[in-house]
């Protein structure tokens, strides 16, 4: 299923889509795949697979630690393609979230081709904007891959219009000015940003950064509130695994419980 179909289905059900993130190869290669499949099983509508990178400037300590663990375990770029294949086989769309240099190093066209072959839906690119480099645009278009760029509370209306014009799949709205990481309260910057983005596009708008439980997910998805079409959760999933070092089964139980809480949250809105 494509990302846009998934969002359309969720919308038809009168709810937001739940997008779940984990870095590839965390806590280890086999455990990482099992974790993502558990998230699919428990109710994530879209899976976002992080490509571990040595210099992740948009990530807070939780995701940094997880990505570093994957790198220390010997993660290679090609490993993400196998994980994409495993997730895509469930019918749940799998996007890769990656900093730019590993893609450029792999070869942009080659990466796009291999990602498409693996059944991947597309890329989320936190450190490039559509005007940074045309190479990804061309490769994504050639292979019909989704291009998910970020908009931020600091984005001008002109930049939001430019960015959404280049997006395919959905638009990623960062709810806070800051890096990834769970936060106790929902940002008051999310609502205005979603509203400004929705004025510029008919694409689904998903909100990420800081969401860690079902109540926050419900708040972000509330139609009379922030009104996001999707809720993106990352660090909280990572935390669930980090809290159970060396005990994958306990980690998977925690992931499942968190996913069920979040999936209920996006349906409560």
């Amino acid at each position: 299923m494509s990302v846009s179909t998934t969002f359309a289905t969720a919308r038809a059900e009168g709810r937001a889509a739940l997008v779940g993130y984990l870095p590839c190869g965390f806590p280890d290669a086999a455990g990482g795949d099992a974790a993502l499949l558990a998230m699919v099983e428990a109710g994530c509508d879209v899976i976002e697979i992080g490509l571990p990178y040595s210099d992740p400037v948009m990530d807070g300590p939780t995701v940094q630690a997880a990505a570093q663990q994957a790198l220390d375990n010997g993660f290679r770029t090609r490993d993400v393609l196998r994980t994409v294949e495993a997730v895509a086989a469930t019918g749940t769309p799998a996007l890769v979230m990656t900093y730019w240099n590993p893609v450029e190093r792999y070869g942009v066209e080659r990466f796009a081709a291999d990602l498409a072959n693996a059944g991947g839906a597309g890329l989320i690119t936190p450190d490039i904007t559509p005007d940074a480099d045309p190479a990804w645009e061309q490769a994504a278009d050639a292979h019909a891959l989704d291009k998910v760029y970020l908009v931020a509370p600091s984005s001008t209306d002109e930049r939001i219009a430019m960015t959404v014009a280049h997006c395919r799949g959905f638009v990623y709205a960062t709810a806070v000015m800051g890096v990834t990481g769970a936060r106790a309260t929902t940002s008051d910057l999310a609502g205005p940003l979603v509203a400004r983005t929705k004025r510029a596009t008919d694409l689904p708008v998903a909100v990420g950064l800081g969401i860690s439980n079902g109540d926050q997910a419900a708040e972000v998805a509330a139609k009379d509130g922030i009104g996001a079409d999707g809720v993106i959760v990352g660090s909280a999933f990572v935390r669930a695994l980090l809290d159970h070092p060396g005990d994958l089964r306990a980690g998977l139980r925690a992931l499942t419980a968190l996913t069920e809480d979040l999936a209920a949250g996006v349906r409560r809105a």
């Binding site: 400037v57 948009m58 730019w100 936190p126 450190d127 490039i128 904007t129 940074a132 480099d133 045309p134 760029y149 970020l150 908009v151 931020a152 509370p153 600091s154 984005s155 001008t156 930049r159 960015t163 960062t174 000015m177």
Partner: peptide
């Protein structure tokens, strides 16, 4: 020039306005 491709601005959107 962009063809030669040195420099540019590969940055999160959040920092582009700044």
């Amino acid at each position: 020039g962009p063809e030669r491709g040195f420099g540019g601005r590969f940055m999160p959107e959040a920092l582009v306005a700044a």
